[in-house]
Each structure stands twice: as C-alpha cells, then as structure tokens.
Design a protein around this nucleic acid. Structure first.
Length: 426
RNA sequence: GGAGAAGUACCCAAGUAGGCUGAAGGGGCUCCCCUGCUAAGGGAGUAGACGGUGUAAACCGUGCGAGGGUUCGAAUCCCUCCUUCUCCGCCA
C-alpha cells in the first residue's frame, strides 16, 4: 500500500510511474476526489464531536447542581443524529478509499528496466557451464519414471491433477534438499530458522499483498476464512504484523520451509507435465526486515544467498532483472534466478527475490523505532526463494542425468542422502 | 466439541446505582537528591499510536481485546466475534 499523504502530494508523478507497469489506472483516477471527500467528512464530524463532548460536560455539571438540562439534552439528541449520519457516510468513503489503496501496486524502483512483458526482462549475469551430453537429455519426468521416484498418476487418483507423490530415494532427495537449504541459510547466512503455520487468515494475506486482488490464485478454507499459504513469505512476514521493532534488532532475517499451495488459475495447459507447475510444492523462503536506507544492498545480499544454493549444487543459472511490466504487484524491484533445464533448452525460474520497500510494511503495520521517543517508521521487507525445492529437484535430475538413466547426486547433497552418490534405475 | 472465567497503558492491577477517570495504586524504566562501594531511602517523569486543522507552537477527534447497539453522554449496560486460562471430551 502506498502512503496516503505521499500519493496526495505526488499524484501526477506516481501516476506516470504506475503507468509503466501497464496497469489499468481507471480506479486510480478516483483518488483525488475520494481523498478530498474523506477529509471533508472528517472535518465535519469531528467539529460536531468536539461540540458534543463539550456540551456533555455541561449537562453533567447541571445535573450535579440539580439544574434543568432538558434543553441541552434535546439539542444534543439532534447533534447525535447528525454525527451518526456523517459517520456512516465517512465509513463508506473510507471503505472505498481503502479498497482503492489496497489494489494499487507498488511503484517500481528507478533501477528497474522499463518494459511491457517478460520479453523485456534484463539478464544481469550468468553462472556455471552448461552440461554437455553425448546423448539426448531427457525431461525430468521421464528420468524420474525410469528411477521410480515420482508418481503423478496415483497423485491424480488420490487428489487430482498437478499433484505428485515422491517415492523412495525421490522422497529422500526432496527432504535432503530442504534440509540442505535450511542448514545453509541458518548456519552460514545468518537466518533464524522458522517453521510456520501452513494456513493463514485473511489479514495476513492482505498484509503481504495476495489479497484483495488475487483471491482466485489461493486455496481457501471457506468456513473459517483461512487460506493455504501460497508461500512462507505470508506467515513469516506477518509474524511481525502490527509490531514496532527495535532498531538494534534490524536487519531481522528468517528462513522458513513450507509447502506452498497455488490454484494456478489461468495456467491451464502450461507446464502440464512434470514438477514445474504443481498445486502443492515445497519451498525454502528467505525473509528480511531491514532499515529503509539498507534495502537495496539487502536485496543484493539476499539474492546472493539464493544463488549460493545453486552454486553449491553445481546448477548453471542466470540472474534476471524483472522489468516494470512483469514486476509483481507488491514488489518495487525483483530479480529472478533461472536455472538451466537441458530438456527445455532454456532457463526456468527457480527463485524470485524482491524488495517491497515499505509496501508490505504499511499494509501489515510493521515498523521500527530508530531511537526511544522517536516516531516509528515503516521497515522495508524483502524475500526470496532459497529455493523452490521441486524445481531444484527437476534441475538436478536433468543436469545430472547419465547415459544409463541414472542420476548423480551433487556432492554437497550426499551427506543429506546418507552418503548415496547416485540414484539407479529400478 | 462441551462447561466456566478473564481480556484496562512496558508489566501487574483498581475501576458497575453510566457523567468532575484517558483511566487510582504498584512494579519496571528515565532523570534528580541523599548515601564514600553495596544495600536502602527521598523527589520528579513515564500512553503510545493513528487521524484532522495549522508554516509552527498548538488545538481537536479516535482510543480500556475487536466490531456493532442503547444513551445527550459508556472502560462501566446489551449483542456478536476473537484470544487466553481452568475443567471435561477427543485426538497426534
């Protein structure tokens, strides 16, 4: 959410910047009149309330002195009616303004490349040599089938499409990846390890920006208004919702594993095979709460932490700076890490690292105090996948596949696999 | 899931015949005095937050878990919800 005063004072400039996202700005046009209407109603209603408070004192005094206060009471009865009426109108206007503000995306940072779609994203750097095969590399679902470590068919029977069973060494590999990533970030990168709830309430989903605009993307438990987490970002960022943090504690860094649930509305027909796009997938998430002046350095740092996972696993990747037209709703700037998938002959997103500046913090009420008695300020929040585990699983199968159908386990992972160096066809 | 009790400021806690209580008292914290260390003692200060008006000083509004209602006026009365605790049931 953007700051009301800031929008009021910089309306035209902000409009220009939002336009670069390719957003429909029809709603935003309503801002100036709504904002003015709101303030007008506040002025009116508060003047009446001040009067009511004053006269109520007067009535109390008269009653104590056994004087007649009927005329005043009669007068205040009318004032009360007017206040009630104005309050109702004010509430309606504030509700509308609130919905408007909650649906306006973040302003892109000046360093974000201007563009319309993912075509215009800018590659920042590449790492690693692409693997060379003296045979035709197979897609990961075919490799997995030979190894007997994934079962999509039975998952479809048990649940539905876009779900999967990991089996045997496949299940162990998935678990090894989670443990490897969590250990790396908590032991070496200084993140505090968290294990969050996988269901969150509406306020949390609104705090990080999934709601109100993207409700159809989420799985919802209807009767108690809970949502299955689409990413651990939601519970972990909201961990500090409505809090004022100590400046000395910043930056705060958390890493959290969670299963992630996404309805993938609108993705019908895309990536229907394999692990790339599932309704449920595992991910290790990095979340940072930082001082505003540090947040862009922090974004580089966080991106580096995610990259480190790929480097240790020996998976070739590139870093892409997401352009204005492709930027997520809440992000001011975003880097994607894209891992090389041989069977696709292309890089595919495996991590997304964003700086939200104070956009989420304002929605979620996450502030900090620089010094005692100073006014609280909003923190900047960042997060990034470190990494999406299912896609990492797929990348390992594809990049480490051998001519005989086996898959070599990257060395860094072997301690987590009880020493297993290779998964052989069944 | 059933039955009870409770939610007041950083913490504990008083406050129902509704009005001079936005909130007694204590602890903690900050400052000052006294005390050559320590212990103890004395005094002062300690809602923050959000919103509105204003160049500003400042003034006004909201605020006693949340949201409604009754009333000229609510921490105090009524309703709904949330959370915590105790007991029972059920489970992992």
């Amino acid at each position: 959410m953007l700051d009301l005063k800031f929008v009021r004072e910089n309306y035209d400039e902000i409009k220009k910047k939002l336009d670069k996202r390719g957003e429909d700005l029809a709603d935003f046009e309503k801002f100036p009149s709504l904002d003015e209407k709101r303030r007008e109603l506040i002025r009116e209603t508060e003047a009446l309330k001040a009067k009511r408070n004053e006269v109520s004192q007067e009535i109390a005094r008269k009653k104590r002195n056994k004087e007649d206060a009927d005329a005043l009471i009669q007068e205040m009865r009318e004032v009360g009616e007017r206040i009630k009426d104005l309050d109702e109108r004010l509430r309606a206007v504030e509700e509308e303004l609130d919905q408007l503000m909650l649906s306006i995306p973040n302003i892109p940072h000046e360093s974000v490349p201007v563009g319309e779609s993912e075509e215009d994203n800018v590659e920042v750097r590449r790492w690693g040599d692409l693997p060379e095969f003296d045979f035709e590399p197979k897609p990961h679902w075919e490799i997995a089938a030979k190894l007997g470590i994934l079962d999509f068919e039975r998952a479809a029977k048990v649940t539905g499409s876009r779900f999967v069973f990991y089996k045997g060494l496949g299940a162990r590999l998935e678990r090894a990846l989670i443990n490897f990533m969590m250990d790396l970030h908590s032991e070496e990168h200084g993140y505090k390890e968290m294990w969050p709830p996988f269901l969150v309430n509406r306020a949390s989903m609104t705090g990080t920006g999934q709601l109100p605009k993207f409700e159809e993307d989420a799985f919802k438990i209807r009767e108690d208004d809970y949502f299955l987490v689409p990413t651990a970002e939601v519970p972990v960022t909201n961990y500090h919702r409505d809090e004022i943090l100590d400046a000395d504690d910043l930056p705060l860094a958390y890493c959290a594993y969670s299963a992630n649930f996404r309805s993938e509305a609108g993705a019908a027909g895309r990536d229907t095979r394999g692990l790339i796009r599932q309704h449920q997938f595992n991910k290790v998430e990095l979340v940072r709460f930082v001082k505003p002046e540090d947040s862009y350095d922090e974004l580089e740092k966080l991106t580096g932490h995610a990259e480190r996972v790929l480097q240790l696993l020996g998976l070739p990747y590139r870093v892409v700076s997401i352009c204005t037209g492709d930027l997520g709703f809440a992000a001011a700037k975003k880097y994607d890490l894209e891992v090389w998938l041989p069977s696709y002959h292309t890089y595919r997103e495996i991590s997304s690292c964003s700086n939200f500046e104070d956009f989420q913090a304002r929605r979620a009420g996450i502030r900090f105090r620089r010094e005692p008695n100073k006014k609280p300020e909003y923190v900047h929040t960042l997060n990034g996948s470190g990494l999406a585990v299912g896609r990492t699983f797929a990348a390992i199968l594809e990049n480490y596949q051998q001519a005989d159908g086996s898959v070599v386990i990257p060395e860094a992972l072997r301690p987590y696999m009880r020493g297993i160096e290779r998964i052989e066809p069944k």
